[in-house]
Amino acid sequence: MIEIKNLVKRYGKHVAVDHLSCTIEDGQIYGFLGPNGAGKSTTMNIITGYLAASEGTVSVNGHDILEEPEEAKKSIGYLPEIPPLYMDMRVGEYLEFAARLKKIPKDKIEKEIKRVTKETSIEDVYRSLIKTLSKGFRQRVGLACALLGDPGILILDEPTVGLDPKQIIEIRELIRHLGKKHTVILSSHILSEVSAVCDHVLILSHGKLVASETTEELGRRSDASGEIEMTVRAAKRHLAMILDCMDSVKDYRIEPSEEADCSDVIIDPVNKEDIRERLFYRMAEEKCPILAMSLKKSSLEDIFLELTENDKEEQKA
């Protein structure tokens, strides 16, 4: 379990992390989500003890990262944004070095390396020089290094950046698999990724925690808008006249459609009521065929923007 209390990190006058508090429970996959520069990497660097916080505390399984750094660091495996690889070493050599650095007992090192290379499927490049490896394999070697010693907590900073789509899917599979045994914290600025992999999403903006929700809650939020999207074969004027007469329509927006002689309309019903059937009969009476109609789901991107923009406005005010 990681407890973050009132974390502040200043670089000169710039505040990178602004009074961040949260608790990371065991056995779940957490996603740090935020636009670039939101303080994701800084927070991760503080949790792992690479940077020191200006204010506030981080404790890992009850060990304060500043007071008992060795105990705290032992239970964390960290994959930074750029995997910390020595280009002039071979994969096997590197993992052995990392294993010794993590104080894994000598007689267990070989077994550990075998385990992590299997888990990340890098057995084939075991003897290759790291500088000859592709980005995807370097990422895997970095991940293998983080897995050494079987730490309870894995911290992965943007683990899929710069990978091709196939590799992204593979790494996500791997993370989901790892999430069964480890507590995982990953960061990303891609929402779909976080919602695909994580159980819990922490949204950061300008160093502040603006939302902390489970992925389901986030999903429910996207259903909640209640707006109806519709494509109707009718002139704009005609359609406006019909909608003006309907009591259950609070507001609407008509836009020219891509289809010939049609109009697209977004309707905001009174009390977010589902008025699709009423619309259907009304349009039928008017002999305006409905070509498409659906409840509008705000995309995760919209929610994300909404949450992070709100914060900006608050700051201005």
Partner: peptide, 14 residues
């Protein structure tokens, strides 16, 4: 420069 200090300084060594 190559960010490998992140490995050294986040490992359980002083």
């Amino acid at each position: 420069k190559s960010k490998t200090d992140q490995l050294l300084l986040t490992s359980p060594v002083t």
